Amino acid sequence: MSRKKSVDPELSHRLSRRNMLGVTAGAGAAALLGLSAGTAGAVGSAAQGKGAGATQPVLPPNRLGIQLYSLRDKIAEIGFAAVFKELESFGYDEIEYAGYTQGIGNISVKQLARLAKSYGLNGIGSHVNYADSNPDGYSFATKLEQVLDDAEALGLEHIGTASSPARYGNTVDAYKRAAEEFNTYGEAARARGMKFYQHNHGDEFGFATDNPNVRLYDVLLEETDPKFVFLEMDIYWAYTGQFRFSVTPEGKPRPFEPIDYVVQQPHRYPLFHVKDGVHDPDSRDGYDMTDVGDGDIDYKTFIQKVNKTNKGRTYHHWQVEHDQPVDSIAFARKSADHLHALTEKKKG
């Protein structure tokens, strides 16, 4: 990062992929940029406006994101700049951080923010540990102000955690205690102009150990203040929760639909993780994780329902993710192609 900006191709302002496609709107630009036909066609069609044809993109404009945890191997190997260059070429608009270090040299959060901007990537959120057993660790519980300082330097709208709320256990009171701490973090984040959020896994949809009729996720929603605490629904993990916890420990049916949580409180879900899985009733979770577009989760319908609930508003953000992709760059490309290709018939 010590090189002058005028000679640093990784930090200099370049003609973005979206601007280029907007000007050319053709296969020539796609070939020049190394894009797949699916991505180029979808973005090019979207750029033509309302009169372009009988369909429109399902994904809201400028809302395609990726959780960088999916690309942690490449960030460690080739650094943020090289990864961001690839993401821009695939048509990504947003990124969600999962740490601020790379494997090829130090970078400050301010440098990271400038780097992302130079590739047309909007930092939308970040995952930080809820707590850390090391009192000097980096987490909301141990270094709240530093966490918020870093998020502010990165220009984030959201700052959150993918840690379980089960810090104190899986009882009703344990979740209430976690919710109280989340409220504190959320109030502090709001004072900085940001939203604090929690990202779910499957266990949150389980039942309290001291009350088998109470779903823990419901406790979290009820006990957190909607002014201060927001949710990032990981749709894949929500579906695994649906599979695992459709019946109480006492054998009573308690089915739920993940989308219903969003429809009932759409303002509390600014962020989503788009993560796919092949249904496998013999596995513990009911699904085997796979690349977005290769599984059985109907993201087109899910996104459409959120859009309908929105009534045209576009304050939701969609981050693709895979915990263990075989090829992280190929995963990022394939996911962008799949979501860009989702279209629906226009009304009227």
Rank of each mutant, 00 (worst) to 15 (best):
L231P: 05
F243I: 01
P253K: 04
V292R: 07
G241I: 11
G202I: 01
K227P: 07
Y236W: 15
G202A: 15
V274S: 02
E232H: 03
L231Y: 02
D218P: 04
D296W: 05
K227T: 11
G251K: 05
H267C: 00
M233L: 12
V247K: 13
G295V: 10
L231K: 02
E232Q: 13
M233Y: 00
M289A: 15
T240W: 02
V274Q: 06
Q264S: 14
V274M: 03
L221R: 04
V292Y: 07
D210L: 13
Q242D: 10
D203H: 02
P281G: 14
E232A: 07
S246Q: 10
A208P: 01
A238I: 07
T290N: 08
F228H: 09
I297D: 00
Y217F: 15
A208R: 10
Y239M: 10
V214M: 10
T248L: 06
R215M: 00
G293Q: 05
P212V: 08
D285E: 14
D210N: 09
R268F: 11
H201S: 04
P255G: 01
G241Y: 09
G277A: 04
I235C: 03
F207M: 07
D234Y: 03
G202T: 07
D296N: 13
I235Y: 02
E204P: 05
L271A: 08
E222M: 04
F243D: 08
P281K: 14
D282F: 11
G277L: 00
P255H: 08
D291W: 05
V263S: 10
H201I: 03
G293P: 14
I235W: 08
F207L: 09
G206N: 04
V214E: 13
T290H: 09
R284V: 12
E222Q: 15
V214C: 00
E250G: 11
R215T: 01
P226I: 09
M233Q: 05
E222K: 14
R284N: 14
Q242M: 13
D225R: 03
P270H: 05
R244P: 08
D210M: 13
D296M: 06
V263Y: 06
F228K: 00
P249W: 05
R244T: 07
G241M: 04
G202W: 01
T290C: 15
F243Y: 14
N213L: 11
D203Y: 09
G251Y: 04
Y217H: 10
D225K: 08
L271K: 04
P266R: 04
D282W: 07
N213R: 06
R254W: 05
K227H: 12
D282V: 07
I259V: 15
D203W: 08
K275Q: 02
L220I: 13
P258G: 11
V278C: 11
P255F: 12
T224H: 02
Y236C: 05
H201P: 04
S283L: 06
